[in-house]
Design a protein around this nucleic acid. Structure first.
Length: 191
DNA sequence: GGTGCGATTGCA
DNA sequence: GCAATCGCACCA
């Protein structure tokens, strides 16, 4: 969906390609699908901006999703998932890797989309695997809860992605989640 | 306060 | 196939 309402004007007359809040405050599976092809943007302390086209995501949808960190209720770690969509949820996995999630939906409903892979659009970063995405974009716990409308981390429109090139599969690494493990909540670009 | 482990990655 | 490495969820 490339709705025009998702394009907002910057303070000047220049039109930005930045996704606005309403993009994220929608059903998680919808947002997950629509995140494919979008551009993940990260402004580094040195002023450089990294960009990468999102090519793979996974949705974690609600308190009943047994694969979700929110399945056991709200905790200090997963608190950002309960916020209104449009912020980041970043956690440390295996004591080594950070994982970037895009929080979705309304306040009080825990949901997020894990960014699993990006391609370089022009001069951007390629990264296959959630830990590698976070590393490539220099994202860590400091970005946990950060707005995706802020100056460090944000998303922009990309070329629309046709359904013909989108695959859906079960999520990775959630075998413990019973029937939820089989749900096709993983969206990726065919190649 | 103690214990077990994970929405992963890289190397043998 | 499996070690790395630690925050945190859970139990006492």
């Amino acid at each position: 969906m490339t709705a025009r309402r998702d394009i907002e004007a910057s303070s000047g007359d220049r039109i930005t390609r930045r996704l606005k809040r309403s993009f994220y405050v929608r059903p998680t599976l919808e947002v997950a699908r629509d995140l494919l092809g979008r551009t993940l943007c990260r402004k580094l302390p040195d002023g450089r901006t990294l960009r990468g086209r999102i090519t793979e995501v996974e949705a974690y949808d609600g308190p009943r999703d047994r694969a979700s960190h929110a399945h056991r209720g709200r905790t200090p770690r997963n608190a950002p998932m309960f916020e209104r969509g449009g912020i980041a949820y970043v956690y440390l996995i295996y004591g080594i890797h950070h994982c970037l999630n895009v929080v979705t939906g309304e306040c009080g409903y825990p949901a997020a989309v894990l960014v699993r892979a990006t391609d370089p659009p022009a001069h951007g970063a390629r990264a296959a695997g959630p830990g590698l995405v976070a590393r490539a974009f220099a994202i860590d716990r400091r970005h946990d809860g950060a707005s995706l409308s802020g100056g460090e981390l944000w998303l922009e429109h990309g070329a629309p992605v046709s359904d013909r090139v989108v695959s859906r599969t079960a999520r990775v690494g959630v075998a413990y989640a019973g029937a939820w493990a089989h749900r096709r909540y993983r969206f990726l670009m065919k190649r």
